[in-house]
Design a protein around this nucleic acid. Structure first.
Lengths: 144, 144
DNA sequence: GCTTGTTGCAACCTTCGCTGTTACGACTGC
DNA sequence: GCAGTCGTAACAGCGAAGGTTGCAACAAGC
């Protein structure tokens, strides 16, 4: 499906900030998170920017600046993160309009639309069942 | 998510063949299906080739050749089609291994793996609830 | 056996989204 | 004013999807 890692990296960043704050720190820098995720700080800033627009994190600028959680990890679900970083639908329709003179070409899009909406609703429901606190708990539960 | 239209086009092709056979025809050509889906015959042949490998359709060569269903539409589900045309996972992990010295970097992949597996299982279950006969019924139910 | 219509498949191109990178302005604590 | 950090634009590299062309393989009918 040409899957991307945006949800994974966003969850990584949130778990990292959450743990860091639990350890008494105020803010985390994109540099620190990028090191943990083994990527570029700009990639982290872009993703966290989308999470900020969704109200999940806050940022401060200037010296000693960085990122902090806007809410408790326990009140944040993977659905919140998914909707913040994945705008489009899961399945795409035809790239060009199918033949409207053909019975199948005419009816296929409304048919699939309805089916896809049901499926995406179920997906959202599943994503909403997992909080970021669950994620961090699972992260810390990994055997050494 | 950079969604693709492979599942949509595959369902379109199967519904088209199914309806065509219901009308008394033996086989459908990739040319006919491509016209209905408004795309290139080679794209259809590629997709149907994957469905053939999955045992959903059969093809004949030579003059008067084309494609036919290998099973009833009612015994085929969107999950069968999905697994035939979408090999990869829904969500990707990090492109590079995260920092194994970091607690989060070490535990994030097993944590997300478990979560993603549950979600994909739910997705598969939903896809399995829809047969291609359901799809064709919905297609024909579209108001003119 | 020849012709014809169709699949099978390789090769190539274009487009697009994701990711990575550099650069630099904006901001703020000291 | 300096230093550290975010905000964001710009660009390149990469890979997947989709479109297109070309041609070999095949089989039905004559």
């Amino acid at each position: 499906m040409s899957a991307n890692s945006r949800l994974t990296i966003a969850a990584h960043a949130l778990a990292w900030i959450g743990l860091y704050q639990r350890q008494g720190h105020e803010v985390a820098t994109s540099e620190q998170i990028a090191t943990s995720a083994n990527t570029n700080p700009v990639v982290i800033r872009r993703l966290l920017g989308e999470l900020r627009r969704a109200g999940l994190v806050e940022s401060r600028r200037g010296v000693g600046a960085g990122w902090s959680l806007a809410r408790e990890l326990g009140s944040m679900t993977l659905l919140d993160v998914y909707e913040a970083v994945e705008p489009g639908p899961l399945f795409a329709m035809h790239r060009t309009t199918p033949d409207q003179e053909c019975v199948v070409g005419y009816g296929i899009q409304p048919a699939m639309q309805g089916i896809y909406e049901d499926i995406e609703e179920t997906l959202r429901h599943e994503l909403a069942r997992v909080t970021l606190a669950n994620v961090l708990r699972d992260v810390l539960a990994a055997p050494r």
